[in-house]
Design a protein around this nucleic acid. Sequence first.
DNA 1: CAGCCCGCTCGAATCGATTCGGCCTAGAAT
DNA 2: ATTCTAGGCCGAATCGATTCGAGCGGGCTG
Lengths: 371, 371
Amino acid sequence: MQTDPAPRTAPITRPTLADVAALAGVSASTASLAYSGSGPVSDATKERVLAAASELGYAGPDPRGRSLRRGRSGIVGVVLEERVRAAFLDPVKIQMLDGITEGIAPLGAGLLLLTDTGEEGGNAVGIESAPVDAVVLVGCSPRLGHSVEALRRRGIPAVAIEGATGDDVPQISIDNREATRRGAEYLRDLGHTDVALVTLPFDAARTRGPLTPDLERGSTADTASERLLGARDVFPHATGRAAAVSSIEEGLEAGRALLADPAHRPTAVIAQSDLLAAGVIQAAEELGVAVPAELSVLGFDGIRVDGLQHDLTTLVQPSVAKGRAAGEAVVQLLAGEPPESVCFTSTLHVGDTTGPPPRSPSAAGATPSRP
Amino acid sequence: MQTDPAPRTAPITRPTLADVAALAGVSASTASLAYSGSGPVSDATKERVLAAASELGYAGPDPRGRSLRRGRSGIVGVVLEERVRAAFLDPVKIQMLDGITEGIAPLGAGLLLLTDTGEEGGNAVGIESAPVDAVVLVGCSPRLGHSVEALRRRGIPAVAIEGATGDDVPQISIDNREATRRGAEYLRDLGHTDVALVTLPFDAARTRGPLTPDLERGSTADTASERLLGARDVFPHATGRAAAVSSIEEGLEAGRALLADPAHRPTAVIAQSDLLAAGVIQAAEELGVAVPAELSVLGFDGIRVDGLQHDLTTLVQPSVAKGRAAGEAVVQLLAGEPPESVCFTSTLHVGDTTGPPPRSPSAAGATPSRP
DNA sequence: CAGCCCGCTCGAATCGATTCGGCCTAGAAT
DNA sequence: ATTCTAGGCCGAATCGATTCGAGCGGGCTG
């Protein structure tokens, strides 16, 4: 009565530590000690246990039992606001992820990819129920609050990258507003007065389209809002368009819309990401608008953009360092130390996509403020 | 008004299902049923349990206990042969990862990133001890055999992408040899006879340098070997250099070495990845060698390479489909169905980096085999 | 020679949830 | 009215490993 080929020693089930102990002639507790090495066990005994284990083909303690008892799973979750595909298309995310792995290296923990897209169905392993010791929330997800609440109830410590949770969750962020302001000031000093914006999405719906007061007010995305404020600090009346995601395609679309009418064409565009900036440049090329002669474009991130011919003027943020800081914060949290927020600063990299505005304003009796 | 209510019932420890059951006035088993919904429980009771849970701030069954009992953790491991940073720099890997998430979607499982770089120290969660239900081995890791053995002992089903394990592990692969042969034939038909190779690493040490019989014989990397064979099918005596990793930098270095001596310059280079090909092209530009006029370059993968000006002639492989197939194989395996290997085919994309060889061979009385 | 200390093992409890068989009760059928 | 049926609920065992305190024998010291 055996469905499987029943070898002499192997029952249907995999050997457990108890089996090993029995074969070695010791108690389960001793066998456990022999493995974890955290107790006084004679070398002879330990060897006997190991021998028994190898005879049984025992591959070491089952992580499930272990994590139940220990209360730790050795896994750190990374919560992405988008599906994995989208996140990995964003070079900034990848760099942060890499930084995170560096940061949590001392833990020797694994990285579990999670998304907080809505409810998890059935047996799904979501943020609500994943065997993680801590999580890193990546990106300013609109539904971040929901996730944080779930984690709090589960008693799982969290660190947020670029997402104000307003709680006891440590934040890893950058000077979004100040950085953008510096970039805007640079454009202003070049002589630009007619500046358009291309922003990251503001809300969970990822509404694409013209910037409206309603949209801005309803923002649940801090990064977009902060960068918007930084731009407005210098160009109070600047307006533009919101993209649905940070991608070249979205930037292209926004760029087409902004540059469509030659009569009302900005002399500069402040894009909230390098990918969006690249898209705007692509749109400019399509429409025969020269960059930077007729249009200056400013990006944000400091990544190398695939296929972009220009050396983009952009605000370079330390993505890897951000990730690493988040990882280190997780380590601290798990060690019981108090959470510590960090704010990095970005630097303006001047490339070849920005320059003085063209001599004659694109028509339209705009403020000729320069004598 | 108490954010952290220290209610009469809440001790230092988090509530368990038993606590909830007690408060609801039912047994733990009933409470469990109320949550899993897999048994007959009256609506009234269920509601009472849920109410008790919310009163206690119970966030649902602990995944540790659940997975111990159920024997499933709801996590699928992805074993990368390199550190995460390196893997995510490779667009092919990212695409495969994305495909995997698609493939395992019906499982609702999380993805745990693992690397099989050597032994795991201390409490590290490695391939030896990770709470995974199955794993996908990505890439032809030299130490793959070791990983497979560990998994077999633990009884964890695995699927390998591009790595011959020679066992009962289902393989997801592509026609590396045939595809490369087709590419080589294309070059031959253009008139090339003097072709150099730039290969992926052959061994665990990632030895960089000239191809030698020793190196080729000692190969533990099937992808590199297969593609090499495909090239040799057409150019039996072709030689070249092995790169340490698939990257533009490595390709650049190999390209410099291959093109250094104007007297012994190949008219075409077969690179085993697009990144390597891009590096070779970069080297050619450095040295003033025109592509494709003086040098044809063939890549492999079909990705868009960052910053590359050309439309690379390459063998396009279905990376996402490979990942998806692997994910689907995992689902099958977990469902108890027999493993199923898949082999995809690549297609030759002719871009602008290949053309006929220059009129006068690069000097050196090389085999003027064409009359 | 007796007593004490120390190092090694063992038992038993615990972590938190799930599952299976059995019991109980209310309503229905005869 | 009695028996049958079935839906609901409970008890207890189980998953696999870890941990803490107790026991026990041998070596060292006074």
